[in-house]
Design a protein around this nucleic acid. Structure first.
Lengths: 146, 146
DNA sequence: CTTGAAGCTATAGTTACTAGAGACATTAGA
DNA sequence: TCTAATGTCTCTAGTAACTATAGCTTCAAG
């Protein structure tokens, strides 16, 4: 049996985060020791590793909740899990594209900014001027529907 | 003079977001019409476009605040803006790496999940098992210092 | 046996917004 | 000119996914 600290260390998740996951019912309520401390077994470790891993891959907690509920009753067609993964893939591809554009932009900024004064430097300009920008801003800020 | 709605449309920023930016003093308090409605000129549009653009490129509002304060007194060496951009570039490169790994993972998941039952499908397994994973999880969840 | 680390609960704070209520302003059409 | 629709106002509260703090108890090591 693992204490919450050991569990966190093994799974790479901070202690308060584990308690938070329990609170939002992503993890079941843990067994308690005689002194009211949480105790975890192998199953809890696996479940937490799953969550950690999925978060790391960019899944939201809601998506993870879905995935976990699938894994809790595995006698169904795989289509649901597949759909979740596909939706995530789309999201990821879009984020990749935007980040790649950003990288180019930043590199350009850094090159053009080589040791001058701000007045001569294009960092501010590049960020202010739409036409110098590689991305297109079709959607208003805050429309990043995940 | 633009009303808040027109300004938002031109800059690609939602109306409540503009009011929020004013509230946190990223934008100065706007002039008001006789009927107490906010009015904006060209300068405000430029400043908002700058913010929008920078947010789009992944800068935090705090970084943007720094950048704006630089642009507000441009008679300094460019090093500060440069440092901000370089820090952002590092962040972006790391995010890019992780997202690329994720993409591969998801594609693998989708292929392996082709039409089976969940019990036979590896989506859950891939997300649960560390050893099948392309990323390395050095840091505990929540350590993503932006 | 005592000290210091680790655990407990509960509440509040974070970032960057978004949503809703209820009232006032402005604009376009009949 | 009136009216209806749309836009704007303020204020409060909610969101995700945690993080931090306070004040307490429990546990393991020396």
């Amino acid at each position: 049996m693992l204490t919450i600290g050991k569990l966190g260390a093994k799974a790479g998740v901070k202690v308060p985060t584990i308690r938070y996951y329990e609170q939002i019912e992503l993890l079941p309520e843990a067994e308690r020791s005689s002194g009211n401390q949480r105790l975890y077994g192998q199953k809890a470790l696996e479940r937490l590793a799953f969550i950690r891993h999925a978060r790391d891959l960019g899944f939201t907690l809601e998506a993870i909740r879905d995935l976990l509920s699938l894994s809790d009753n595995p006698d169904q067609p795989c289509a649901a899990a597949d759909a979740i993964a596909k939706a995530q893939l789309l999201e990821v591809e879009s984020r990749l594209a935007r980040l790649t554009a950003l990288k180019g932009e930043l590199e350009r900024m850094i090159v053009q900014c080589a040791g001058g004064r701000i007045a001569d430097c294009r960092v501010i300009e590049i960020l202010g001027d739409h036409s110098l920008c590689a991305t297109d801003h079709r959607h208003p800020r805050g429309d990043e529907t995940s």
